[in-house]
Design a binder for these strands. Sequence first.
DNA 1: TCTGGGGTCCTAGGACCC
DNA 2: TCTGGGGTCCTAGGACCC
Length: 419
Amino acid sequence: MGDKERTIFHIDVNSAFLSFEAVYRLQHGAKVDLREIPSAVAGSQATRHGIILAKSIPTKKYGVKTGEAVWEARQKCPGLVLVPPNYALYMCCHSALLDLVRDYSDRVQVFSIDECFLDMTGMELPGGPVAVANELRERIKRELGFTVSIGVSTNKLLAKMASELKKPDAVSTLYPHEIEEKMWPLPVEEMYMVGRATAPKLHRLGIYTIGDLARFDLNLLKHTFKSWGILLWNYANGIEDSVISSSGRTVIKGIGNSTTIHFDVDDRGTAHQVLLSLVETVAMRLRHSGFCCSVIAVSIRRAEDLGYYSHQMTLQTPTDCTNAIYECCKRLFDAAWKGEPIRHLGVRVSRLSPADHVQLSMFEKDWEDQRRIDRAVDSIRTRFGPRAIIRSNFLWSRLAPLEGGLSEDASYPVMTNIL
DNA sequence: TCTGGGGTCCTAGGACCC
DNA sequence: TCTGGGGTCCTAGGACCC
């Protein structure tokens, strides 16, 4: 990393989906600001997508949590105003934020739809980093209408932890010399990378705060958690030196779609059809990205206990062909399914290689024909909409012909692994 | 009448090779 | 003639993030 000290900003949109929604509605004549009343963005219960995706600060006061079931949230907070998600709108807000932020640095790492890192190292910062961060925060509020929390420090981990310190609409620093005072007193589960499974294990070792973790014996952590233990100890001590990867737009490792079906599936035929609707979008995205895949995986979530299992296979020859992937998915499903009612199905392809130098296998003689068909379907869907052409067996079914998938915008933000 | 959907990385165990 | 040992690849499952 060199010995030069860096200046990193982490920008986090406060209650992102809900704020985007609130701003949009105000701009279109709404009288109430969703951010000021108990409200949330949530999926539809009728189609069994009923969970809270984002909530207002007043809602938070009722103890409602993101990811919680809607009926549960309603019990805690009667009168909760719910609005359906609108991902296209969120993408617009995301792009607008990035455009604005790039005025301040060209080294921007998109971390998710509502978070990014800015490398401000070596920039002229009139009044210091905090003054510039405040100006940026004000400008976002003024021009885009929503508020952000900005964390300022010398690496990404500390900048990210800093942005959590004060919300909404705030700038916080967490410099190395402030770690002991600002970060160590926090509960260990508030540290990035300490999740549901790790927290209780740390508690069992007598580790309750981030400070406890930072001062814990590293060898003992290594013994218990392997490489994970080293990562946790480093983070607790503010040690993290990954670079901001901006231009090197993150290399995609895999593409997947999954869906919760609005009724329980208990027969093979219906399951196959769901898989097909997932493969249609996965394969289209795969071709759009210019890759072929070598690994195909199908995952199944049971209806009764939400238990989950998966099955995967490696191909001899990489492919991006809808039918080829679908045939594999059917085989994988048939081999894996134990016959229980299914709530959720997923398809994922990985081990990607560039599509332009895929070796043609002499056994797949109709391969070029298939590619031609896929290309033709893709171009019709691109020109006339994704539903301009669908498989006839979906016409009389209860299922959507294409399931899941992100807007064809290739710049969709994907979480870029550990910092 | 149960909790979405998109990702990433790591690890253990088995197969197989030399 | 007892049983190494190192390496790679594959799969299933588990952890985490937003």
